[in-house]
């Protein structure tokens, strides 16, 4: 299976009621011990600086993000704390109001283009932080 199969799939509850579309797939990255110390200083390219980059192991699927509105792009605003520039941030938040996370354990069935959730699934907070 590929992630592209899941994205934009219709999401139904156990009784066949429409909930929206898959807009993203949440993963948990296993972090390995990281000894690398980012170089800093005036003569080091900024891009080699202290930006977050993690030494990773396995990547496990933990859930699906479901938006009741549309399957379009988020520009990254919905699930992070970024609130500027205000005009674009508030527009994106409005467009994707009502997005929720559903745990992978509560996904019951995956068919082409349609995903059914288990009875009594929980709507979890979609934010990443």
């Amino acid at each position: 299976m590929i992630i592209g199969d899941l994205l934009a799939s219709r999401v139904l509850d156990h009784d066949g009621g429409g909930l929206g579309h898959v807009v993203d797939v949440r993963l948990a990255l296993e972090l390995r011990d990281d000894d690398a110390d980012p170089e800093t200083g005036d003569d080091v390219p900024l891009s080699q600086g202290a930006l977050r980059s993690d030494l990773v192991g396995q990547a496990e699927v933990v859930g699906l993000l479901v938006s009741p509105h549309n399957g379009g792009s988020f520009l990254g605003y919905e699930r992070t704390g970024v609130r500027s520039p205000w005009m674009i941030a508030s527009l994106m938040r409005r467009m994707h109001r009502g997005t929720f996370l559903v745990a992978w354990e509560q996904v019951e069935q995956i068919e082409e283009g349609t995903i059914t959730l288990a009875q009594g699934f929980d709507r979890l907070d979609p934010s990443l932080h």
Binding site: L7, A28, E60
Partner: peptide, 12 residues
């Protein structure tokens, strides 16, 4: 993974 150190990200 849930017991070890981990970082949650969204695939897309």
């Amino acid at each position: 993974i849930e017991r070890a150190a981990r970082r949650v990200i969204d695939a897309r």
